[in-house]
Nucleic acid binder design. Structure first.
Lengths: 341, 341
DNA sequence: ATGAAAGCGCTAACAT
DNA sequence: ATGTTAGCGCTTTCAT
């Protein structure tokens, strides 16, 4: 057992030292109005003298709030957490909370044990709200939290008619733009690398690919589409090799993530194809400044900063019970042209 | 305000429904001994019927513990979090806690504001202990926590005489082994890439480099040593370019991290050097299965799994106030030979 | 503007 | 084995 050391000063001792009532001390530490300036100073001095720190458990119990929110990564494969997409989201969420008194707690949920433990933690009132990243279609966590009445915001959605509040990028539109760009460049044999199909985001990006082809009256061939197991570089490599075997005349590839795209580039070069001369490549861009796409290719940029900010805004609104205009927000992507393919 | 919805059943209601006293219900949910099996079942049924979940704030307040520990990343540059070294540690720590009732909370401390907020969170009793990653020499956080009497375990140390409990790899020894191996291979003009010198780990690794040279009676030349700003690949690239400019006859490089080593490889190849024929490279290995060193080179492997496990063990011991044999643990590294350089 | 007092829901010590 | 009770330290009315 750890916790606050015995002998930790309490609000009551502060009150005694300052010669005021408990209520007054409470008002001071909560910066509530209606305290004379001289009293406030006296209390503050007592606080400093004693090194008083509020007991958060007591505050939670009496105040019915935790002043904390959880950002949950529900991914059995924890290494995904190192992916730029997630680190950027974490950064954006952290930034959005920096001016609030709310403590951000990142948590991993990799197994049913951990899921159970987290639900008890959250339902137990240790957080006021939950942000969910990387949710797979069959994940029960969002519903468990919703049923418990906990304010919850997801990054992405599990399906087309999602009940939980979410923020998503316009994956379909972004993919459509990308493939339309490839078509405009004269490409016709365009391969598509989706991510894992149990994630709606992968379905959307593939749908965008199809829609672009259909609009241009180009035949959609299933043999040009490969759904990977995940969004990793290695996955991109394997899929590309497969694609090249099936379609030696491949002249473009649309990849559903930038790590996939990196794998595509590697595999293409190994196979002796020039990029973008022989094969043009476009991927979604997770916008990680430290690991720029190399070489710079045209990418579909997701507004990660805005996604994180929006998630926080929606969550705080739900926590305040204030009216929310939209419970579903879909943010536009941007096609960043960086080649002449 | 969020938190447990109004109308959430309390322990008292469970007791009433089950027709027992509060104490008994408490015993049941805490799996305490001394409850008849039939009573236990009756209580359990009431719990299920009501969908009761314990209020963790009340439990903390009465029980003087939080059943949670924080794993803190104190790095102004949050992107570091994506580095394999950290994701592996997070995984190992998560694994070590998976069979305990303790919830793991990851937190970012990037600024003074966040440091302050976290200290209040921790001192406020929301966690029973703190694990610290990526601590820089002048970081005041460890002392703030120690002064507050919070069980704390650091990954690495801030200096040679660290007061806070820590777990570290044998950086000096590992570096010595690496450089000794290079010398045994006949290399004499060996460059050294340290990390940021405000981190003790970087100093140790450079010391190991020096010691190996001294033991072999090879002159230590300052011009062969470059301290980077951080442990990133980009940093490794720049440093290597500098090294090559100063020493065209460079025949080996010792890098203080695997990401640095990756940068070294890139820069060497760009400069037309063959690896390991012209220049042998050895780096510390953060052992990330998903991003293997490419090409496989000899590396100094740190026992990350064991580091994480040990940190957790020490922390739990400190939390239990049970006697701890060592407050400082230094784990051996292993030289993994993968080339003929 | 400030003090007093009633809980918040639980654990743990003490009875029985 | 189980019921009873006294807090844990705070927020929040309600008086004054």
């Amino acid at each position: 057992m750890g916790r606050q050391r015995p002998g930790t000063p309490t609000l009551e001792e502060v009150a005694a030292l300052a010669g005021v009532g408990r209520g007054t001390v409470s008002r001071v530490i909560n910066k509530a109005a209606g305290v004379r300036d001289s009293t406030r100073r006296a209390v503050q001095q007592a606080i400093d003298e004693l090194g008083y720190v509020p007991n958060l458990a007591a505050r939670s119990l009496a105040g019915h709030r935790a002043d904390a929110v959880a950002l949950v990564m529900t991914e059995p494969d924890w290494r995904q957490f190192g992916e730029p997409f997630f680190t950027e989201i974490v950064r954006a969420v952290g930034d959005a909370l920096t001016d609030t008194p709310v403590q951000l707690l990142l948590t991993l949920v990799r197994s049913d044990t951990e899921r159970q433990r987290f639900v008890e933690y959250a339902r137990g009132g240790r957080v006021d709200g939950v942000l969910l990243m990387s949710v797979h279609a069959q994940d029960p966590l969002p519903d468990m939290l919703a049923k418990a009445g906990l304010p919850t915001v997801m990054l992405g959605r599990r399906s087309g008619d999602e009940s939980v509040t979410y923020v998503d990028a316009d994956n379909t539109g972004g993919a459509r733009d990308a493939v339309t760009h490839l078509l405009a460049g004269g490409r016709r044999t365009i391969g598509a690398l989706g991510g894992p199909l149990d994630m709606y985001v992968a379905q959307c990006r593939l749908r965008g690919y199809r829609e672009a082809l259909e609009r241009a009256d180009v035949e959609v061939r299933d043999s040009l589409i490969v759904a990977g197991e995940d969004f990793t570089e290695e996955s991109g490599r394997r899929a590309t090799a497969e694609l090249l075997a099936r379609h030696p005349d491949l002249d473009a590839v649309f990849a559903a993530s930038d790590t996939l795209a990196a794998g595509v580039l590697g595999a293409l070069r190994e196979a002796g194809r020039r990029v973008p001369e022989d094969v043009a490549v476009i991927g979604f861009d997770d916008f990680h400044p430290a690991r720029p796409m190399e070489p710079p290719l045209t990418t579909v940029r997701q507004p990660l900063e805005e996604i994180g900010r929006t998630m926080v805004r929606l969550l705080l609104e739900e926590m305040e019970d204030s009216p929310v205009a939209w419970r579903h927000v879909i943010l536009r992507t941007e096609l960043v042209l960086r080649d002449s393919a």
